[in-house]
Each structure stands twice: as C-alpha cells, then as structure tokens.
Amino acid sequence: MSDMELLLWARGPGLQGAVAVFVAGMALRLIEIYSLGRKRDLSPARPGNGGAGWATIITRSIPHKELLRTTYLTYILGYTFHIGLFVTLLLFAPHIQLFRGVLGFGWPSLPSPVVDAVALVSIAALFGMLAYRLYHPVKRFLTTFGDHAAWLLTMLPLLTGYLAFHHLLLPYTLMLAVHILSVELLLVFMPFTKLVHVATIFISRWYNGDMLGHKGARL
C-alpha cells in the first residue's frame, strides 16, 4: 500500500468507520448512564434555583479563587491545553475545509502561523500535564493505565498534525495519513476511556448544580 493509498483509506473508509464507532460508543455510554434513572426528590426545593444545573455547566469552568490559590498549576495547564486543542481543531483552515465538506458550512479561520504556535503551546501544556501527573503525589497516586492511554490518544493527533504541517520526520503524505489515523484512534477510544468526559461533563455538572441548587446553595 502506497502512502497515497493509505491516506485515501484513512480519509475514506477509515474515517467513516471511526466516526461510526464513536457515535455508537457515545450513544451506548449515554444510555448506560441515563438508563439507571434517578429518584425524584420529594423535599421542597428552594425557590428561584430551577436553572442551577444549566448555570453550573458554565460556572464550573470558572475556578474559585480559594481553590485557585493552591491548585493554580492544574488549572493553568488544563486551561492552556484545552483552549489550544479547540483552537487548533476548530480554527485551522484545512480542518474547517473538512468540516465544510461534512457539514455543508464553514467559518473563518485563524492564520496558519498563529494556529501553529497555539498547537505548539497545547503540546507543551500536555507534556506539562504528564510531568505534573508523574510528579504530584495525588495525581501519581490516582494514575492508572487508562490515564496514560488517554494522554497518548490525545497527544498523537496534535503531534502528528504539527509534524505534518512542518513536513518533519516522515514524507508529508504519509505523515498526513498517520495524523488522520491518529484522530480515528482517538475517536474510537474516546467513548471507552476517561475522554468520555467531553460529553459526560455536561451531565455531571448539571446534576451537581441541580442538587446544590435544590438546596439553595448555588455556585
């Protein structure tokens, strides 16, 4: 199989298969969660907090200053990585082209050198997170194989994308194929690792806010 054939496979059947697994996997995980149900709370709620669940989806992204003081590095690395990842994914011209092809519409992109720099920062933050995970006593204590697997699954698309953009390490066509394959790997495993938080974070934050809001202790 030539580099071009691999690229064509990755962009065609490979991508379709990966997206199918991703969609089915995510649906399964959501069913696994929601099918467990939740007992109705019979205690009278404090008035005026009906939207606390929805609000918490947003507000929980803002670290409180009391917590920020002791845990700033986790927040800084986490924020840097996540913002960098989303900028790279959503504001890089070739990515938008792909989305336009699938969705039928696109949006303005950032200049490539800017995205390039952001991607590099995001990669650096991800390495920082790994180092912190290995160094910090609590993080190290909690770390499982799954954490490292999730780290690798996330790192590969960023790294291979960066290498492909700069024509480094492998011939461009091959590196581009490897980049797309790494994204497919990420899609396939996302529902079955902690990376499922891309979807479940909205559910858990909603429940958290709803339960606190019920008691009037809204944050």
């Binding site: 995980r29 696994e32 969660i33 929601y34 099918s35 467990l36 149900g37 939740r38 007992k39 917590l67 002791t70 845990t71 986790t74 986490g78 910090h136 609590v138 993080k139 204590f141 909690l142 770390t143 499982t144 954490d147 902690k194 499922v196 938080h197 479940t200 974070i201 559910i203 858990s204 429940y207 339960m211």
Partner: peptide
C-alpha cells in the same frame, strides 16, 4: 443511579478534590 454513573464517567483523575 444516573448521577453516580455520570460522575464516575467524568472523573479525569486530576486530583483537585484532594486540595
């Protein structure tokens, strides 16, 4: 229940709860 399942699903082992 569903809340517990969503909580366990979402945990990323960041360790912030320790602090």
């Amino acid at each position: 229940d569903a809340p517990i399942a969503s909580f366990f699903s979402s945990c990323v082992h960041c360790g912030l709860c320790a602090d």
